[in-house]
Amino acid sequence: MKLAAAAYKMDVLDSWEAYAAKLTAWVEDAAGQGADLLVFPEYGAMELATLAGPEAAGDLEASLHAVSERIPQVDALHAELAKIHGVHILAASAPVFDPEIGPRPVNRARFFGPSGAMGHQDKQIMTRFEREDWGVVGGGPLHLFDTALGKIGILICYDSEYPLLARAMMEADLILVPSCTEAAHGYNRVRIGAMARALEQQCVTVMASTVGDCDWSEAVDTNCGMGGVFGPPDTGFPADGVLAQGQMDQPGWTYATLDLDAVSRVRKDGVVLNRAHWAEQAGRDSPAILRSLS
């Protein structure tokens, strides 16, 4: 299969038609290169707030509502594009007000299959900005999607820094990591997390990033990152685990070709068997015994 990870720059949009044309061009570009799976980043949907005008886009609370109200329309467009091009698409995540969860929005990534069918994954653990300044909350449970490309899980940005979340989807062949980070420190935290999850679970992780400045938003004003695809540094994979990476802060797609059998082989007969040996950590969550050498 061919994987496509986006480094996505958000724009000021003057109409819905402008957004539809932009998304269509991105999907057509990747599909035209033979991509089977397209991964957009965390909070890439925040550009939709500009359709409500600069005042709404620049206000933390108003921008949440402006984007959430557009999501049904956005999802219909993604479903149509997935069907037209016969691809899987992880849409850019967005704040969504879901009355089944509560009065505050979740950070939700929606996943589309070639039939147009849709599933979604909510972010589990909020960053300090999300919880302290923006009021975005953790959402529904983790899901594992059974697709023609294999079993696919999603860990949104900060979630990728927590190994037990990845372990909960230990059957995943691929874990998608949509990300939105404002500085190299944040980008590298998520990248290191994505690479560690690939090592631990002996799977492939696909990281997408927002890039560029958005001076119209207090929430996503600065963005740093690039696309990347990572595997375990073991049999059948590159020595550093990097299958592909883009150029820092340069918009566009990063592509990698993957033989999914490589995941099965490394899990069965790798030089190390991290995934299989995970259970040997049982009971190790208690503090280490403190001993004095003085």
Score class of each variant (00 low, 15 high):
residue 79 A to Q: 07
residue 202 Q to M: 07
residue 227 G to Y: 02
residue 164 L to T: 13
residue 24 T to Q: 14
residue 197 R to Q: 15
residue 276 A to M: 12
residue 58 G to F: 01
residue 253 W to F: 10
residue 77 L to Y: 03
residue 262 A to D: 12
residue 294 S to E: 13
residue 284 R to V: 04
residue 81 L to R: 01
residue 113 G to P: 07
residue 101 I to G: 06
residue 112 F to A: 01
residue 71 I to C: 12
residue 173 D to N: 10
residue 203 C to I: 04
residue 18 A to G: 13
residue 49 A to N: 05
residue 189 R to N: 15
residue 3 L to S: 03
residue 254 T to Y: 02
residue 34 G to I: 05
residue 254 T to L: 03
residue 107 N to V: 07
residue 56 A to R: 05
residue 223 N to I: 04
residue 105 P to M: 08
residue 176 L to H: 01
residue 238 P to K: 04
residue 225 G to Y: 00
residue 220 V to Y: 00
residue 68 S to T: 07
residue 136 V to M: 11
residue 246 G to Q: 00
residue 129 F to L: 14
residue 224 C to G: 04
residue 43 Y to H: 13
residue 76 A to T: 14
residue 171 E to L: 11
residue 163 P to K: 04
residue 255 Y to I: 02
residue 117 A to I: 04
residue 8 Y to F: 15
residue 285 D to P: 01
residue 217 S to A: 07
residue 122 D to G: 02
residue 125 I to C: 10
residue 254 T to F: 02
residue 204 V to W: 00
residue 130 E to H: 11
residue 41 P to I: 03
residue 179 S to W: 04
residue 131 R to D: 10
residue 206 V to M: 05
residue 192 I to S: 13
residue 206 V to R: 00
residue 201 Q to Y: 07
residue 187 Y to K: 06
residue 190 V to Q: 00
residue 51 L to H: 03
residue 203 C to W: 01
residue 8 Y to Q: 10
residue 181 T to P: 02
residue 267 R to E: 01
residue 92 A to P: 05
residue 92 A to N: 06
residue 67 V to Q: 00
residue 214 C to D: 03
residue 207 M to H: 06
residue 182 E to N: 13
residue 80 E to M: 12
residue 188 N to I: 10
residue 30 A to K: 01
residue 11 D to I: 11
residue 76 A to P: 08
residue 118 M to I: 14
residue 57 A to D: 02
residue 177 V to D: 00
residue 74 V to C: 09
residue 239 A to N: 11
residue 177 V to A: 02
residue 231 G to Y: 02
residue 224 C to P: 06
residue 226 M to Y: 02
residue 111 F to W: 09
residue 9 K to V: 09
residue 235 T to M: 11
residue 165 L to I: 07
residue 131 R to Y: 08
residue 269 D to Y: 05
residue 183 A to T: 15
residue 109 A to S: 14
residue 94 A to F: 05
residue 258 L to W: 06
residue 80 E to A: 14
residue 120 H to K: 11
residue 52 A to V: 06
residue 243 L to C: 10
residue 63 S to A: 15
residue 199 L to A: 11
residue 126 M to R: 12
residue 196 A to S: 15
residue 69 E to H: 12
residue 176 L to S: 00
residue 107 N to G: 04
residue 88 H to Y: 15
residue 286 S to W: 12
residue 112 F to Y: 13
residue 137 V to A: 10
residue 142 L to I: 12
residue 4 A to K: 01
residue 87 V to H: 02
residue 247 Q to M: 12
residue 47 E to R: 07
residue 5 A to R: 01
residue 22 K to C: 08
residue 213 D to T: 10
residue 131 R to I: 09
residue 45 A to C: 14
residue 49 A to R: 00
residue 27 V to T: 08
residue 114 P to I: 02
residue 285 D to M: 09
residue 186 G to V: 06
residue 229 V to D: 00
residue 293 L to I: 12
residue 236 G to S: 06
residue 280 E to N: 13
residue 283 G to C: 09
